[in-house]
Amino acid sequence: MLQVLVLAAVLGFWHVMTSPTLLPPFYFDNPSQAAFFFGEPLKVFGRVVEWFVSGEIYRHLWITLFETMAAFVIGTVSGLAVGMWLALSPTAAAILDPYIKAMNSMPRVILAPIFSVWFGLGVWSKVALGFTLVFFIVFFNVYQGVREVSPNILASARMLGANKRQLLRHVYLPSATSWVFSSLHTSVGLAFVGAVVGEYLGSAAGVGYLILQAEGTFDMNTVMAGIVVLTAFALVLDWAVGVVEKRLMKWQPKSGETEKL
Rank of each mutant, 00 (worst) to 15 (best):
Phe45Pro: 05
Pro107Asn: 13
Ser78Tyr: 03
Pro174His: 01
Ser116Arg: 09
Pro25Leu: 14
Gly39Ala: 09
Ser54His: 15
Phe131Lys: 04
Phe192Cys: 07
Leu86Met: 05
Gly226Glu: 09
Phe139Met: 11
Arg47Lys: 11
Asp219Gly: 06
Gly130Thr: 02
Val228Thr: 01
Val241Ser: 07
Phe135Arg: 02
Leu86Asp: 00
Ala162Asp: 01
Lys246Tyr: 00
Tyr143Glu: 10
Leu5Ala: 15
Thr222Trp: 03
Met159Tyr: 09
Phe26Asp: 03
Pro25Ser: 12
Thr91Tyr: 09
Met106Val: 14
Gly226Pro: 05
Tyr200Trp: 11
Phe181Leu: 06
Trp14Pro: 15
Phe66Pro: 00
Glu148Phe: 07
Ala240Thr: 01
Ser89Lys: 14
Gly198Leu: 11
Ile153Thr: 12
Met220Gln: 11
Thr217Arg: 10
Asn163Ile: 11
Val171Trp: 00
Asn152Glu: 11
Ser203Gln: 10
Pro90Ile: 07
Leu22Asp: 13
Ile74Glu: 00
Tyr58Cys: 10
Trp118Ser: 02
Ile114Lys: 00
Tyr200Gly: 10
Thr76Gly: 07
Trp239Gln: 06
Pro90Arg: 01
Gly39Ile: 09
Ala234Pro: 14
Trp85Asn: 03
Ala71Glu: 02
Val53Asn: 06
Ala70Asp: 08
Gly55His: 11
Ala70Gln: 03
Lys43Gly: 10
Ile63Glu: 03
Ser19Arg: 04
Thr186Lys: 15
Val223Lys: 00
Ala195Ser: 12
Met106Thr: 15
Gly55Thr: 08
Glu245Asn: 13
Leu154Ile: 00
Glu56Thr: 05
Leu2Met: 08
Ile137Asn: 08
Val243Ala: 02
Gly75Val: 04
Ile227Val: 14
Ser78Val: 01
Lys260Val: 07
Ala9Glu: 03
Thr91Cys: 02
Thr186Trp: 11
Met224Gly: 11
Val44Gly: 05
Arg158Gln: 12
Ser187Trp: 09
Gly194Ser: 13
Gly39Glu: 02
Ala155Leu: 12
Gly83Met: 08
Gly120Phe: 10
Ser183Ile: 10
Val127Arg: 00
Val146Lys: 00
Leu230Lys: 04
Gly206Asp: 06
Val196Pro: 00
Leu237Cys: 07
Gly206Asn: 11
Phe192Glu: 05
